[in-house]
């Protein structure tokens, strides 16, 4: 029986969908059978990020309403054998699905897949409640910004209230040089507030913009810093011990030299 994991954040625009797409891709790359569920009904995005928009016939709402069978709605990824997507409906809204229906749906999905990743919508209303129904664990995505961390804290409280096991934290879009200058919250600052375990740090990476627009997750691209971070997180999700990567390694040679002499 597979595991159902929700990717959530509270705040919008912090990278839930990008994270879901990349983690799913990385897990499938390592040979796992993975299903990505876009729970953001009405604001469908995950299919675009994966470049699968043109293959959608049926969606999540069609499945829960019994309009089609689950198998008919699932889209096979064009690159990876084990990766599947259950797209959101574009023309309905969050109230067209109930947490009960989501629980049944995830129950059915976990029979077939090793990992079911649910891309949660922003907010804490019905859409969020649907996204967390029936999940085994949660991944919280936060960027190093006060508003994002505040919302993540709110979400962690709601997950605790729903008796979902302690969530793991992904810090997204970190800019190590800004942290070093004291202009950005550090990973330590965030953990100090949220008091949950860290599962990965994804550095800010221009390539994400390019790959997201192209519908081709960065996890597929060798040499992408963010892609590498996502591949590492995927391995940790699968239970492997992977050391955290040195985010300073990409800064210029002079920077490193200066830091060595304590001038940075």
């Amino acid at each position: 029986m597979g595991e159902v994991i929700v990717v959530t954040s509270g705040k919008g625009g912090v990278g839930k969908t990008t994270t879901t797409a990349n983690l799913g891709t990385a897990l499938a790359q390592s040979g796992a059978r993975v299903c990505l569920v876009d729970a953001d009904i009405g604001l469908r995005n995950l299919d675009v990020v994966l470049g699968l928009e043109n293959r959608i016939v049926y969606d999540l709402v069609d499945v829960v309403e019994g309009f089609c069978r689950l198998r008919q709605a699932l889209i096979r990824d064009k690159r990876l054998e084990g990766l599947h997507l259950l797209p959101a409906a574009q023309t309905k809204d969050k109230t067209s699905v109930t947490p009960e229906q989501m629980r049944e749906l995830t129950q059915e999905l976990r029979q077939e897949f090793e990992f079911v990743l649910i891309d949660s919508p922003a907010g804490i209303e019905q859409g969020f409640k649907n996204a967390i129904a029936g999940v085994d664990r949660a991944l919280i995505v936060a960027t190093p910004e006060v508003a994002s961390v505040r919302d993540a804290d709110r979400i962690i409280g709601l997950l605790e209230a729903a008796e979902i096991p302690p969530a793991k934290l992904i810090v997204n879009r970190l800019r190590p040089q800004m942290v070093r200058r004291g202009d950005m919250m550090s990973v330590e600052d965030i953990i100090d507030i949220l008091a949950i375990d860290l599962i990965g740090v994804v550095p800010e990476d221009e390539q994400i913009v390019v790959t997201t627009n192209r519908g081709e997750p960065a996890a597929l691209i060798q040499g992408s810093r963010a892609g590498e971070a996502y591949r590492n997180i995927a391995r940790r999700i699968a239970g492997e011990e992977v050391p955290f990567m040195d985010l300073d390694a990409n800064s210029g040679f002079l920077d490193r030299l200066r830091r060595m002499f304590g001038q940075a």
Partner: peptide, 8 residues
Amino acid sequence: RRTLRAGQ
């Protein structure tokens, strides 16, 4: 006996 989080 726990941490009070945002919104609580």
